[in-house]
Computed example of a mutant assay.
Amino acid sequence: MLRLMPLRALALRCLALIGVVAAALPAAEIHIMMVQWRGETEAEIGFREYLDRSGLKLRWTVFDCKLDPTRGATVPAEIAAAKPDLVYAFSTNGALAVVGRHDAPTTIDPAIPVVFTVVGDPVGAGLVPTLTGHGRNLTGVSHLVPMKTQLTVLSQVATFKKLGMIDVAKSVSARLIRQELETLAKDHGYVLSAATVTPGGVPAEAMAAAATELLAQKPDAVYLPSDGFLIANAAAAIAPLTAAGIPVFSATEQPVRKSGALLGVVASYRAVGRFAGAKAERILRGAKPGEVPIEPLPSWQVVYNAKVARQVNVYPPVGLLKLAEAVE
């Protein structure tokens, strides 16, 4: 026998369903503030691409720190003035400018959710004490391929007993990578030597000086860590190293695609941005940031520069070539 729901009960059920739909599809305009560290990258493009297709009504504002820690220090005040519904933060420096360390937070309103991208080591950088149960109103995506994986692949491309690295003064990301390379040196059979560049003055001259310092140490290969200043000015260091026949490996894709590095075992910045966009959408539809995991991009790729391979006469093995993306 067909049972009819009482009119009052039916009305209440409909109102409940309407509430669920309203929570899932916010009707009001959502304001997202993007805090960039070195202008727009593929990560920002991917983040916006994903959310622009979400069906959410969005308004975007952008604040670019322009690689300047002084501008970074003004970020909490900029956020307070803008009053966004969600903040996007690019890079370790950008994320620290927004929220600070977990034990030394900035003055940002803790009720504003934050989604970060391109942070190599969120725990090592101090953003969170642990990846889960950290209690902060943020989540995000790490972009670095595990260092052991990188070294395993790089050792198939070139034999190096001495690995050079360009460090960047006061860079949290570069410091953490240097520490990890030093820790893994014995197991992977190399000695690490480094030249440190200090941002300021003429960037190209500082990078060229670091390359000259490394050349004097006679490394078999050179590794470029993930750091905004280094990525933006990599070509000035890579050119003299390549001219000397030294293969340059990179933790990120841009130096391979645009600045003449030989090869990188990397995560696509655009894919990282899209993954972060998916996390932001979950938050905007009602999920708590602490319930949205901080995690790396689940896939990575090998990108190599075929023109540079010919210059230094170092080529990936055939098995790796089948998996790699070649650029010129």
Rank of each mutant, 00 (worst) to 15 (best):
G39N: 07
K218A: 11
Y190V: 11
P289L: 12
V87Q: 00
G100I: 04
V62Q: 00
V115R: 04
V265T: 12
Y223R: 11
N313L: 06
I283C: 12
R8N: 10
A16P: 09
A326W: 03
L144A: 12
V35E: 04
A237E: 13
V123T: 11
G100K: 01
F229K: 05
L192D: 08
T242K: 10
Q150I: 09
E291V: 08
R270W: 04
D121Y: 13
G228V: 05
V62R: 00
A216I: 08
V62D: 05
T159C: 03
M207D: 15
A97Y: 02
V318K: 02
A232T: 15
P240W: 04
V172D: 11
Q150W: 03
A111F: 01
L215T: 10
K258N: 13
P105K: 02
P296E: 11
E40L: 00
K83P: 04
L181P: 14
A239P: 00
G124Q: 06
T130E: 15
S171C: 09
T130G: 07
A309H: 02
L4S: 13
A324F: 06
M33W: 00
T183G: 06
P113Q: 11
I246E: 08
P255N: 07
E291Q: 11
T106N: 07
G55H: 01
V222Y: 00
A236W: 09
P6G: 09
A234P: 15
L154R: 02
A326S: 14
A237R: 10
T132P: 07
H188E: 10
T152S: 12
A95T: 15
I45W: 01
P255M: 05
L320F: 03
R59Q: 12
V119H: 07
H143L: 04
G140W: 04
Y190P: 13
T159Y: 00
P76W: 05
S142A: 15
A104T: 10
T252P: 09
R3M: 10
V272A: 08
A27K: 11
M165V: 08
I238K: 03
L151S: 12
L321Q: 14
P122K: 00
V114H: 08
D68P: 13
L127F: 09
G100P: 13
R53L: 15
R53M: 09
T152C: 01
V123E: 04
V197Y: 09
G72C: 07
R53T: 14
L192Q: 13
A97V: 08
Q311L: 08
W300F: 14
K322E: 06
R48K: 01
D85R: 01
Q254Y: 08
K218W: 03
A237C: 04
L163P: 12
S91H: 06
I246H: 01
G94L: 06
I45V: 15
S226K: 03
R136Y: 02
F47Y: 10
M33C: 03
M165S: 14
T106D: 09
M1F: 06
Q254R: 15
T149C: 02
A208S: 11
A23T: 14
G94R: 05
A16K: 01
V168G: 07
F90G: 03
V123C: 06
A267S: 14
